[in-house]
Design a protein around this nucleic acid. Structure first.
Length: 572
DNA sequence: GCCGTTTTCGGCCCGACTGTTTTCAGTCG
């Protein structure tokens, strides 16, 4: 059982307990455990192997939950969940994803009407049967029907890049509105998670709040208004993306920014620290009794609970508070630290810009080096190169290099890892490359042991330097292939191979937790754009943020080094 | 169900909006 599967079981338990009306703190414990397991990086199964007590070292996991994790790992299921679903249909879990329908109402509907699936609920609502229940009227019934339709149309999360594009025009309008002093997108967007469920826009204003809210809900991009008040509004855009707006006075901006940035787990931990110091922390500020002791700046909140400011990307309650306490926060890598891009394609294969154009674009970015990594033959759809085509490209690189002194153009290739782990390029050509990048582009559904052997074999080839997009996932479209990441990290550490964080917004592969696993094992990472056109060189930003979420400092990311240092690092 | 500078019991983060309410429960973030 994968971590995500364990987390899902705990989430379902939490929801069913909630519908049962169980103790809210017991429910919260299951939710917290789900989150802990999901962001673990290392498989929970391997912690189970390390013996009793290892799991209990995780925050929020005690004796009981540790035993339940063992049970799931060993049997593939959880008796508690089975018992709960004997009493309540599992379909209720899905029903709770409808806005306006929480545990109490779901229970009420199930008890009174026997409705236990989304489809049954839709039928009941269409037939007007919900209105028969106390506390239900036509408005709520309509809202539920709309919620079901929305859920069917757009259940998923949005790529960070997509969400940013959708919200751009709204931000412009808000920035121009009278009274707006500060503005920022908070939430998971500010934490730079790879996908976001909705967007939280925070505005500081000294006057005209109602007019700002009005302008927001009236924006042409808005198709539905879900809620509107003078300080909080919630809308949906045509694409299905929900956008929330909060307006606070300038004096509360820092506290609100902290609060609405989250994560939820991080906020609870911070507020709990506040309680211990007899402070109340809310989105309006930090208070001792009724006296405000801070809140204009985000730093105020941290300072009040005895901590330095923590970068948003690591506010996941996965150790950042403890690190801040010890004054041991990482000095996270920044996009300006990057000195070269190590994966990109040209018109030699499936790129849209010529080699010369990519070189100019990299110079414009001020890079010290770039690697040209066109595909090898096995990737037929991309028109992969054979050895003679590579020689032709090398000659063009030499010609361009003679004209360019401020940028080192590295001869490289994205060499395909064949089904058995052999490389799709002969040793003589490999020997001519400055950097050898290897990736999997075929036979994605090999069983885990075979896929792991395949990748490990490739990494053990003495010419190999970087493993590209290590899990092959495409966010929202293709699951990662089955790969024992712990094993891959171990081999990469032994062989001195670097692991890539591919900065394509729909890849971001390695994931944050895998990248952190690698970093903690001392494996160096490379952040590369995999650009197929000049504009995509700008994706570096997404990759660097992913590295930041993995707690990476500049020294953890190989392409923050100069080329001579980089070359020393990859020598094997 | 977890946890401990209030330590093995008794706490556990906090506020806004909605709808159906005459003072609040449910939901959401």
């Amino acid at each position: 059982m994968e971590n995500i599967g364990i987390a899902k079981i705990f989430q379902e338990v939490a929801i069913l307990l909630e519908i049962q009306g169980a103790n809210v703190f017991r429910i919260r414990a299951y939710r917290a455990a789900a989150q802990t397991i999901e962001s673990l990086g290392t498989p929970a199964a391997s912690l189970v192997e390390q013996g009793p007590g290892r799991l209990e070292q995780l925050t929020g996991i005690g004796k009981d939950l540790a035993a339940k994790i063992c049970e799931i790992v060993e049997t593939g299921e959880l008796r508690l969940l089975n018992e709960l679903t004997r009493e309540l249909p599992e379909g209720l879990v899905e029903m709770l994803r409808i806005p306006g329908l929480g545990p109490k109402r779901a229970r009420q509907i199930y008890d009174a009407l026997g409705v236990g699936t989304l489809d049954q609920l839709e039928q009941a609502a269409r037939a007007g049967r919900l209105q028969a229940l106390p506390g239900f009227k036509a408005t709520l019934e309509k809202r539920i029907l709309k919620g079901i339709a929305d859920l069917k149309r757009h259940a998923g999360r949005f790529l960070l890049a997509e969400a940013g594009a959708y919200v751009g025009p709204i931000l412009e309008t808000l920035r121009a509105a009278r009274g707006v002093r500060r503005l920022e997108v908070a939430g998971s967007f500010r934490r730079r998670r790879e996908t976001v469920g909705d967007l939280d826009i925070l505005v500081a204003a000294d006057h005209g709040m109602a007019a700002i809210a009005e302008g927001f809900v009236e924006h042409p991009a808005v198709t539905d208004v879900l809620a509107r008040g003078d300080t909080r509004c919630s809308v949906r855009l045509a694409a299905g993306l929900q956008v929330d707006l909060r307006i606070v006075p300038l004096a509360s901006y820092g506290a609100a920014l902290h609060y609405f940035t989250g994560s939820k787990g991080h906020n609870i931990a911070i507020r709990t620290r506040g309680v211990k110091r007899r402070l109340k922390v809310n989105e309006y500020g930090v208070f001792r009794g009724t006296r405000r002791v801070g809140g204009r700046r985000e730093e105020d909140v941290f300072k009040a609970v005895g901590l330095p400011w923590i970068p948003p990307e690591i506010r996941e309650n996965t150790g950042e508070i403890e690190a801040a306490e010890r004054d041991a926060l990482p000095h996270l890598v920044q996009v300006d630290d990057i000195r070269g891009d190590l994966q990109m394609h040209t018109t030699y294969t499936d790129g849209l810009n010529t080699l010369a154009e990519m070189v100019e674009a990299c110079r414009a970015k001020g890079y010290a080096y770039m690697a040209v990594t066109d595909h090898t033959q096995a990737v037929r759809v991309a028109g992969g190169l054979n050895r003679s085509a590579f020689r032709k490209q090398f000659r063009e690189i030499d010609r361009l290099q003679r004209r360019v002194s401020d940028l080192r153009i590295l001869k490289s290739a994205e060499v395909d890892i064949l089904g058995d782990g052999q490389l799709d390029l002969d040793d003589a050509t490999l020997a001519e490359l400055d950097v050898v990048l290897v990736s999997v582009h075929s036979r994605f559904n090999l069983p885990k042991p075979e896929m792991t052997r395949r990748v490990v074999r490739a990494l053990q080839h003495p010419r190999v330097n970087v493993l590209g997009h290590p899990t092959g996932r495409l966010l929202g479209r293709r699951e990662p292939y089955a790969l024992d990441m712990e094993e891959v990290v171990k081999v990469a550490a032994n062989e001195g191979v670097l692991l890539e964080i591919n900065a394509q917004p729909d890849r971001l592969d390695l994931s944050d937790s895998h990248a952190r696993l690698a970093r903690d094992a001392g494996v160096k990472l490379v952040v590369s754009t995999d650009a197929h056109r000049t504009q995509e060189l700008d994706h570096m930003d997404y990759g660097v943020h992913q590295a930041r979420r993995a707690w990476c400092e500049p020294s953890d990311v190989a392409n923050t080094r100069s080329w001579p240092e980089f070359r020393k690092l990859i020598a094997r």
